[in-house]
């Protein structure tokens, strides 16, 4: 990570804000919404908040790629996002096939984004192992 790079500082600010909203929205949903109740307009409204937070996180990544003037650091960030996307899509597809054709427990789609976020950390480790540098965050 290059904390002196202003693009990374802006990215970290945006991601921190989005993470706080995301966690707060999940906490609010767990306390406000009743388990297995019929989806009401209020429930949909509460559920939209974490979705908007995730959109802001993706926007933060897009802005980072636009604002980074260092082409090598940009490459590291793109590799991380690709690693996370590959891990998430492949993992969910494998589990999906198992869900349809075997007796494995269903994976709530809620976990797709946390899995992708874990994939970003995996991407940083992949960068470190193959290029010697992880990239931001």
């Amino acid at each position: 990570m290059s904390p002196r790079n202003p693009a990374f500082r802006s990215y970290q600010r945006r991601m921190a804000l989005a993470t706080v909203v995301y966690v707060a929205a999940i906490f609010a949903a767990s306390t406000i919404l009743h388990h297995r109740a019929a989806p009401s307009p209020e429930a949909i409204g509460v559920a939209l908040v974490p979705g908007l937070a995730i959109l802001f996180m993706i926007y933060a990544i897009a802005r980072l790629l636009l604002e980074l003037d260092d082409e090598y650091l940009r490459l590291l960030e793109v590799r991380k996002a690709l690693f996370a996307t590959a891990l998430t899509l492949a993992g969910c597809s494998v589990w999906g096939v198992l869900e349809i054709f075997t007796a494995v427990p269903p994976l709530p789609v809620f976990w797709v984004f946390p899995l992708w976020a874990v994939g970003l950390a995996g991407g940083a480790m992949f960068n470190k192992a193959t290029l010697g540098t992880g990239g931001c965050a």
Binding site: S2, N5, D70, E71, Y72, L73, L76, L131, G132, T133
Partner: peptide, 8 residues
């Protein structure tokens, strides 16, 4: 650029 870039 970053020092990482030069090293790479």
């Amino acid at each position: 650029v970053s020092r990482q870039s030069v090293n790479a």
